[in-house]
């Protein structure tokens, strides 16, 4: 559930509310950032910048425009993509292949308590390659629906229903 009361308190600059928002969203935000930059130190720095932005600009969040989670997701993706464009980042990552969330999950062995580790691994196993690509573009990389449909050479309607079915699998595993 979206904690609307907490978000309102955050917008009134309540530091306690900020702490609880951080507890609730920091790990998922960290995952988004890490899936883009793939480097822990940089991901940590970006996470800090993102939550400072959340504190400074909380008043700018408007529930009539979208979900708080989406708002946060946008800030995190933009900050991460900005970072990947910096020169120092490019130098550092020159010799590494581009990863995406599936690789990270497949390589990962220690999961924190917040997630259903077995469930997520199972999810990746059953996920069709096209699903992996769609979720990567729409969710982790923040493509617009038009851009994703072009990139995947897939009509918009097909993209929408496929994306829904891909996420549905994940829901079935997490909420049996």
């Amino acid at each position: 559930m979206q904690p609307d009361g907490l978000i309102a308190e955050l917008q009134q600059k309540n530091p306690k509310a900020f702490e609880r928002i951080y507890e609730r969203y920091s790990e998922s935000t960290f995952g988004i950032i890490y899936s883009i930059v793939n480097e822990r130190t940089i991901a940590e720095e970006i996470l800090q910048d993102v939550f400072i932005k959340v504190w400074d600009n909380a008043h700018a969040y408007d529930s009539s425009k979208g979900r708080f989670f989406t708002w946060l997701l946008n800030i995190a993706r933009n900050a991460s993509i900005d970072a990947t464009r910096s020169k120092s980042y490019k130098n550092k990552r020159k010799n590494l292949t581009a990863d995406f969330f599936v690789d990270i999950l497949e390589e990962k062995s220690n999961f924190s308590k917040k997630t259903d580790a077995i469930g997520i691994k199972k999810y990746i196993e059953v996920l069709k390659p096209v699903c992996k690509k769609i979720i990567d573009l729409l969710y982790f990389k923040g493509f617009t629906q038009a851009d994703a449909s072009k990139e995947l050479d897939m009509p918009l309607g097909t993209l929408k229903t496929r994306n829904r079915n891909c996420i549905k699998k994940l829901r079935e595993i997490l909420v049996p």
């Binding site: 998922s28 997630t115 994940l170 829901r171």
Partner: peptide, 11 residues
């Protein structure tokens, strides 16, 4: 579901 997925990606 998406929150869980990205949480799982966090190192």
């Amino acid at each position: 579901a998406l929150e869980h997925l990205s949480t799982a990606v966090a190192p």
